[in-house]
Computed example of a mutant assay.
Amino acid sequence: MTLEHKFIEGPPDAPVLLLLHGTGGGTDDLVGLARELNPSAALLAPAGPVSEHGAARWFRRLAEGVFDYDDVRARADQLASFVLDAQREYGLDGRRLVAVGFSNGANIGGALALLRPDVVREAALFASMLPVPDPPRHDLGATRVFLSNGERDPMAPLPSNEQFIQLLRERSASVTVHRHHGGHQITLDALQAAKAWLAA
């Protein structure tokens, strides 16, 4: 497996949460969030492989809010390969897998949902943007996505998130949209809404 990561086992009937940190984060960043979402879930937490001035990220960007889309696609495939390897190594085949991401991690999670539905069919994404324009027209009829965004988030503007929602729905994904009045953050009500979505 190519990515540095942390794995914490859970009972076989609990989901596996793929934890995708934001820019400058690491493998421990979303563990507390994951325990709130599902205390018994197994946790698979890789570290972003791209360094931006020493801050770990999932893919390159050309400027704030301007993604290197070729790199997004390549890194989504890299992450998908890591997940498939980890499922074999840790005996997770057949287990429910849910990507949980914040900010840059939400964007790579969204890219996985759009580009690699063979790997990720469920995702809870906080402060996400449209990860890739014009993705392939995969049938996402078996895909569920929860999206929480702040109405005052300059780093993940709502118009970009709305485009992402539209692309998912055009491909028949089931999308649950949550909005809060804050900025680039995970609010308590967002966490409660995501927990209810995960349990549904």
Rank of each mutant, 00 (worst) to 15 (best):
E52Y: 13
R35V: 00
P39T: 03
L44H: 05
D28Q: 12
L43E: 05
L84I: 10
A34T: 04
R75G: 00
D68L: 10
A86Y: 03
L33Y: 03
G32Q: 08
L79F: 07
V72D: 02
A55R: 15
A86S: 12
V72M: 06
R57Y: 07
P49H: 12
W58Y: 13
Q78W: 01
A76W: 04
H53V: 12
G32R: 11
H21K: 09
A45R: 01
R73E: 11
L30R: 02
D85Y: 04
V66I: 15
R60L: 06
W58D: 04
S51C: 01
E64K: 15
H21S: 07
D70K: 10
D70P: 07
R57F: 07
A74P: 06
G65D: 10
D70M: 05
A45Y: 03
R60C: 03
P39N: 03
G24I: 10
D71R: 12
N38C: 02
L43V: 06
T23H: 07
D71T: 12
D85N: 10
Q78T: 13
Q78P: 00
Q87M: 12
A74M: 08
N38Q: 04
D71I: 11
L84Q: 14
H21V: 07
R88G: 04
F82Q: 05
R35L: 05
D29Y: 05
G32I: 00
V50N: 09
D28R: 14
P39A: 09
V66S: 13
R60A: 11
R35Q: 04
D70S: 13
H53M: 13
Y69S: 08
D85S: 11
L62W: 10
H53F: 13
G26M: 06
D29E: 13
N38W: 08
R73S: 04
A45K: 02
V72N: 05
F59R: 07
A76N: 07
L30M: 05
R88M: 01
A47S: 13
V66F: 09
D71F: 11
E36C: 01
A42Q: 03
G24Y: 09
H53L: 12
F67C: 01
G48I: 10
E89C: 00
L33Q: 01
T27H: 08
A86I: 04
P39D: 03
Q78D: 13
F59K: 09
L62M: 13
E36N: 03
A41K: 03
L43Q: 06
D71P: 11
A41P: 02
A86M: 11
R88S: 08
L84H: 07
V72R: 06
Q87T: 02
G25H: 08
V66C: 09
A56E: 06
V72H: 06
A41D: 03
A86R: 06
G26S: 14
S81R: 14
T27K: 12
R61D: 02
Y90Q: 09
A74Q: 14
L92I: 03
E64V: 14
G32E: 09
G32H: 07
